[in-house]
Simulated assay, not measured.
Amino acid sequence: MDLKEIMARNLRRIRHDKKLTQEELADRAGLSMRYVGAIERADVSASVTVLGQIADALEIDPTELLKKTCKPA
């Protein structure tokens, strides 16, 4: 599994844990809902800047999105 897929799974799991919709996360991160959805499906690779925006919006350390030990959503 590559980092794009790991990030997708972790993002989806963390977003669900925090009871946020894709729309709410996108709004908090200053991103489009379509882009957040594409990241969660591992259709696109997020830049380091976007990784930081998402982590800030989720109020987590960016490394949480890249941990390989997280369980799939």
Rank of each mutant, 00 (worst) to 15 (best):
A38D: 02
I39M: 13
E59I: 15
K71L: 02
E59H: 05
D43F: 14
P72M: 06
G37I: 00
R15Y: 01
Q53H: 13
K18T: 07
P72R: 14
E23G: 09
S32W: 14
A42G: 00
A42L: 02
D17Q: 05
T69D: 14
M7F: 02
G37W: 02
A42K: 00
G30M: 11
L66Y: 03
L51N: 11
E59K: 01
V36K: 15
A29C: 08
A73C: 09
R12I: 00
I60L: 00
A42I: 08
L58D: 05
P62Y: 07
S32K: 09
E24Y: 13
E59L: 07
L31Y: 09
R12W: 02
R28A: 07
A73S: 04
G52P: 10
R9D: 09
K19M: 05
V48Q: 05
I54N: 13
S32C: 12
A8E: 04
L58I: 14
V50T: 03
L3F: 06
P72N: 09
L66S: 02
A26W: 14
V50R: 15
L66P: 00
D43H: 10
I54S: 06
L65W: 03
L20N: 11
R9G: 11
V44E: 04
V48Y: 13
M33F: 13
Q53T: 06
A8V: 14
M33Y: 13
G52C: 12
K4R: 00
I39F: 07
A8R: 03
T21N: 10
Q53C: 08
A8K: 04
S45V: 15
D17L: 01
H16T: 02
Q22F: 00
A46V: 08
T21Y: 11
K71H: 13
A8F: 06
R9P: 07
R12A: 01
K67C: 01
R12K: 10
R34M: 12
V50K: 15
G30Y: 10
Y35N: 10
E5L: 04
Q53L: 11
K18L: 06
L11N: 09
A26T: 11
